[in-house]
């Protein structure tokens, strides 16, 4: 199950999208998400779909791999679609006993399904093409103005990147503790939910103890290397917008403008409805 979740993974290939500035990709994703939630018209979604397909093509990430990300939300997807389908009031199309499908229900069910899938596809496309480091750097720079209202932006970014560094180490450690406890007769597999949850205690306690010890060591090592917060720090890899990024911003904004124009003037286009 955990292996199915591709959201948040990085897919290492070399593409235009991979080389773009992380800030651009973050802003782009935000704009894309706004565009899928703002409009629910047929022509609007044609434009959105075309845009997404061309971005996926540019990213060089295999389409099958991207689709795997949807697996994780399949349950949520089915739930929302069914509820929307049967519980929306309006003009009745089909009646199945006490259940009824309305025209409006069909419409909102389909668009809800599309929205959720596009949301996952769009945001996972960003993480596929951006390394965790670039992502935290981008976030730090984008959120920088929030420092004015006392948000510890640098600290948050630093915590994120340290967490990313320690995920594989802690996974390995979990595995090690699990084996050690199994060798002592611990049982992680049988029994009901309560028994299994209780079984996790001998795993979690040592894991937490060791995580705190690591945190302590790391803090000392960072201080020994003169770390004293974000003040007066320079960057080894500072972010710079290139001309390519500027062109991409223009494309992005024209896409957004196009979607807005379509949604305003849709009533003049040939009518199409489900």
């Amino acid at each position: 199950m955990i292996r199915d979740i591709t959201i948040g993974q990085y897919y290492p290939v070399d593409s235009i999208l991979h080389r773009m500035d992380p800030r651009l990709k973050l802003n782009g994703t935000l704009l894309f998400i706004i565009s899928i939630f703002l409009f629910d018209t047929f022509y609007g979604y044609i434009a959105i779909t075309m845009f997404m397909i061309s971005i996926i093509k540019l990213s060089k990430v295999p389409f099958k791999f991207i689709l795997r990300g949807l697996k994780a939300i399949v349950v949520i997807l089915i739930f929302t679609m069914t509820f929307n389908l049967f519980l929306t009031q309006g003009d009745i199309l089909i009646r199945l006993g006490f259940l009824k499908i309305t025209k409006q229900g069909l419409h909102s069910s389909i668009f809800m399904g599309l929205r959720l899938s596009y949301l996952i596809l769009g945001s996972s496309l960003m993480t596929f093409t951006t390394t965790p480091n670039q992502l935290t750097d981008g976030l730090e720079r984008l959120l920088w103005p929030l420092r004015r209202i006392k948000v510890p932006v640098h600290e948050i970014a630093m915590m994120m990147s340290i967490a990313l560094r320690f995920i594989p180490i802690l996974l390995e450690e979990t595995d090690k503790i699990m084996k050690a406890q199994m060798a002592r007769g611990a049982d992680f597999e049988s029994g009901g939910v309560v028994k299994r949850a209780k079984g996790l205690v001998p795993l979690l306690v040592p894991l937490f103890v060791s995580a705190f010890r690591r945190a302590n060591d790391l803090a000392m090592a960072m201080e020994a290397r003169c770390y004293r917060g974000g003040e007066g720090r320079t960057k080894m890899k500072p972010l710079h917008y290139s001309r390519r990024d500027m062109v991409a911003y223009i494309i992005l904004l024209s896409y957004f403008a196009l979607v807005i124009i379509i949604s305003i003037y849709e009533k003049y286009l040939p009518y199409f409805s489900l």
Partner: peptide
């Protein structure tokens, strides 16, 4: 492990 901060 406990003194390397970055992922690269």
């Amino acid at each position: 492990d406990n003194q390397i901060i970055a992922t690269v």
